[in-house]
Amino acid sequence: MKGNSSSAKQLTDQDHYEAPSEPSIKKVPPKRKKRRKSQAFQEALTGYFFLAPALILLGVFLLYPMGAAFYYSFTDFYILKPDDISFIGFENFSYIWQDAQFRQAFWNTVYFSVIVVPVQLAVALGLALLINKKLKFRVFFRTAFFSPVVMSLVVVSILWTFMYNPNEGLINQLLGVIGISPQPFLTSPDQAMNSIIVMSVWQGAGFQMMIFLAGLQNIPNHLYEAADIDGATSWQKFLHVTLPGLKNIALFIFITISIAAFKLLVQPMIMTQGGPLGSTKSLVYHIYETGFNYRDVGYASAMAVVFTMIVLTITIIQRVLIREERG
């Protein structure tokens, strides 16, 4: 009843209003559309305005240099002669395959990455598991494991250089106590890269440990309780509850460590200057030296382009594999 009467009333109201305002009604919709358009435009403008600082910085410090490097990779740009740049086609790229130093740097970098990525992943997970237990002094351990991450990599590298010193370094003094003769950690071509790997894992693992820790605390407790009821051992619980629960986080960490490992630069630069006999020279360090010390920006750019391709390929492969696993 009520509904009927009200709708009737509305009808009459409409009738009442329609007649006199017919011309104005036609005018109203276009006005509204215009307002909407300009509003949308303004909103977009505001959006771009807020984006601008990020976009400008990205453009000036990332996209432009990338484009410039691509362009210079086809030239003979020598830093002392910036006004005398000529186009030399693929000459720089073809020299890469003859450059023994590039080859050595490439395999050094691959070796570093192949060892560091799984080791650092495992160490980070191990530390996270330890800290997740309700131990005494838990906060102390957490801080201790995380503190190397807060320190500058340059400072850490200098400290470890002292610790690795064969004659006066801490590590060799300790080895001396248990009767092992001093090791040439950074001065032997066979040991230098491994020494840098140990130091890098120590420095970097704390950060991934914190991410793993967050992941561990996100695994719902009822899963463990259910496993307990089923009579699972703690190893079985780790294998079938903890690991699957951490899968996504582990993949994220895997990708970030891989990319970071490929960009190895600071440690060899500070600790060994790429030596002994080039055994710790990384790709990025070789590019840096070529461009800045030997002033051969053209060739350095070509190597940078190739380096980008390599990292891009690795990242794409990892992404594809991850998608498959998710599916």
């Binding site: 400290l159 370094g169 801490l170 003094q173 106590v177």
Partner: peptide, 14 residues
């Protein structure tokens, strides 16, 4: 003592 001296040395150097 030797060990302690070593630790101290590194800390001092640092």
């Amino acid at each position: 003592l030797y060990l302690l001296a070593g630790v101290l040395l590194v800390l001092m150097m640092a």
